[in-house]
């Protein structure tokens, strides 16, 4: 769907988001009707911009870690020497997804204390699964004829991996990363229940002081970030898929 309207909408969303973060005061009249008499309509216990940057940082670090580990593991279990681990790793991914994020977060606290660390660990562990699953799918569903051709051209195992398998699997891997980032963006807000500095702080402050405006602005910032990042990554994915010359179905 290459129409102009969605891109314009996105640009507008980005502009509003930046305006809100840089100068939240402009939006006060919009949020004022939501709060009781003298309650503040704009989060006043810290800068929204700083919290947003911290939020993005924690998600970025966790996602980078998850990408490195998940892709490496997926490559290992799809090589011949790691094949024994393949069936188990599949069922582990399935089991891992049944762990609720709050539980992962709460269980990481005894080991790591309060603050950013348990949040990072929870985001990392939770982010692993979609990336690992998609990398596996990408690497195990390559067309046999392509692999034959690569082998026939006399490529070594390493060359095949880096020149054929990974580039072809890249769109599917990226789809996994995208999913993982969106989940992490939302899950990071829960991190504020264990005192991590994220946008969750705004929402929780709102819940505690019965201030809907806080809840709304915290939630909408995270939502807008998720939509924009999701779209950005989708665009990269499409470009990659075009480059490898196959519009294959991603999940």
């Amino acid at each position: 769907m290459r129409v102009l309207a969605p891109s314009l909408l996105r640009a507008a969303l980005l502009a509003i988001l930046i305006a809100f973060l840089v100068s939240p005061g402009w939006f006060e009249p919009l949020l004022k009707p939501l709060v009781q008499d003298n309650a503040p309509a704009i989060y006043n216990q810290g800068s929204l911009l700083t919290l947003t940057l911290l939020h993005l940082r924690i998600v970025a670090i966790a996602t980078m870690g998850a990408v490195i580990v998940a892709v490496t593991l997926a490559i290992l279990v799809t090589r011949s020497f790691g094949a024994e681990f393949l069936p188990l790793s599949r069922s582990l991914v399935n089991v891992g997804q049944t762990f609720p994020p709050v539980a992962v977060l709460a269980l990481a606290v005894p080991a790591l204390g309060f603050g950013e660390k348990p949040t990072l660990v929870a985001l990392f562990l939770y982010g692993l699964l979609p990336i690992f699953e998609n990398t596996l799918t990408g690497l195990t569903t390559l067309s046999p004829s392509v692999m034959e051709a690569a082998r026939g051209a006399g490529m070594t195992d390493r060359q095949r991996l880096f020149k054929v398998e990974l580039p072809l699997a890249m769109p599917v891997i990226l789809a996994g990363i995208r999913l993982s980032v969106v989940i992490s963006l939302a899950t990071a807000t829960i991190g504020s229940t264990v005192a991590a500095k994220t946008l969750g702080e705004v929402i929780i402050a709102g819940l505690q002081s019965n201030n809907i405006a806080f809840v709304l602005q915290g939630g909408l910032i995270v939502g807008a970030l998720a939509v924009l990042i999701y779209d950005g990554l989708s665009a990269i994915e499409r470009a990659m898929a075009r480059r490898v010359g196959m519009g294959r179905q991603t999940n």
């Binding site: 939501l34 969106v182 963006l185 939302a186 899950t187 807000t189 829960i190 946008l199 969750g200 929402i203 929780i204 709102g206 819940l207 809907i212 809840v215 709304l216 915290g218 939630g219 909408l220 995270v222 939502g223 998720a226 939509v227 999701y230």
Partner: peptide, 13 residues
Amino acid sequence: TIPSIALFGILIA
């Protein structure tokens, strides 16, 4: 894309 704690909160109103 709306984080769960926010959605729970937004629906209160």
